[in-house]
């Protein structure tokens, strides 16, 4: 089992490097970081442009630029943004903001998604099943940015009805917040509810559909009948034998799901003015900044790596055949 996990880890690391290289090259090829400088009025002298190009290493071939950037990244220096501020200074805070959103979103999404799926499968063709199915379909057909906007809309109605600001939808905390520790936590929570809901709803809908079909397959199986025949209660048989088997195909899905979560995260951050990694990517692309883009890509790749590796681990725990 250790060998299996180690091989997967190695595979992921190579993929990570390759993905970052690809993003770096694509960004270097399509971005024109000097345009902003050239369009200034009066136009700056050619020497200034050349100096900037030299500073951004545009006079070097792309693989060399990548090697330089990666060399720095390994030592914790991700280069500078196009405006000259070091990326590392901002990185920690932004990673924290994004991870908070992703982790809570994933845990909520997987937990509730599996629960809804299992309940739907057990109560197949009842009202609750139809209701959950319809709701999941609607959520899956709604893009994240629209879902977030509609939630904002709802929150505003709620706030007006309540007369105070129950749910906040700009930023991740109130700027210059002063108050006790408890009040600060409450303030963060008020800001956290809507973005987390935005990101988790899609995950819940997605996982519940899979979990439902996986569970339905298991429900008709012989081993579940055997488990009940040997004297287990239906509930025990369902959870000990049924759910465990039905979770196996899900393990592979969690890695996929995380990649999608990151895309959704970019929208959510943009929508609720959270200054996280997704928001940074958009900034990076609009300011034609290769370093920011590469840094965000590396972050995404590492996230997918960790979640992929964790889902391999989960797979190994759930399915004894892998451990052989």
């Amino acid at each position: 089992m250790t060998g299996f996990l180690f091989r997967r880890l190695l595979n992921y690391i190579v993929l990570c490097l390759l993905a970052t290289f690809l993003a770096f090259s694509l960004a270097s090829l399509t971005f024109h970081p000097l345009d902003q400088l050239k369009q200034r009025n009066p136009p700056p002298p050619a020497a200034t442009i050349q100096a900037k190009a030299h500073e951004l290493r545009l006079d070097q071939p792309i693989p060399l630029r990548f090697a330089h950037w990666m060399g720095g990244a390994v030592r914790g220096d991700f280069g500078e943004t196009i405006n000259g501020t070091p990326i590392t200074a901002e990185l920690g805070r932004r990673v924290g903001v994004s991870l908070r959103l992703f982790l809570i979103g994933t845990v909520l999404g997987i937990g509730l998604g599996v629960l809804v799926g299992v309940v739907s499968a057990i109560r197949q063709y009842r009202f609750s099943d139809y209701f959950a199915t319809l709701l999941a379909f609607v959520v899956l057909s709604t893009p994240v940015f629209l879902l977030g906007t509609l939630l904002k809309f709802g929150a505003l109605q709620l706030n007006t009805a309540a007369g105070t600001t129950l749910l906040n939808f700009t930023g991740e905390s109130t700027p210059n917040f002063t108050g006790s520790f408890g009040a600060a936590v409450l303030d963060r929570l008020q800001h956290l509810v809507l973005p987390t809901l935005t990101i988790a709803l899609g995950q819940i809908a997605l996982y519940s559909r899979y979990q439902r079909s996986a569970m339905l397959d298991v429900l008709g199986s012989d081993f579940l009948r055997t488990a009940q025949a040997k004297g287990l209660t239906r509930r025990r048989a369902l959870f000990k034998h049924g759910l465990r088997t039905a979770l196996i195909p899900m393990a592979t899905l969690f890695a996929f799901g995380f990649g999608l979560l990151i895309t959704g995260g970019a929208f959510t951050e943009q929508l609720f003015s959270w200054y996280g990694m997704g928001n940074w990517l958009v900034t990076g692309i609009t300011t034609q900044d290769t370093n920011i883009t590469a840094t965000v890509t590396l972050f995404v790749a590492v996230c997918v790596l960790v979640s992929g590796w964790l889902s391999d681990l989960l797979y190994a725990v759930l399915d004894p055949r892998v451990r052989l």
Partner: peptide, 20 residues
Amino acid sequence: VDLLLVLPSFLILAILSPGL
């Protein structure tokens, strides 16, 4: 396919878009 898993297609498309 594995690369697409690590590098979401959305990200590639977003990076490519300014050039197009």
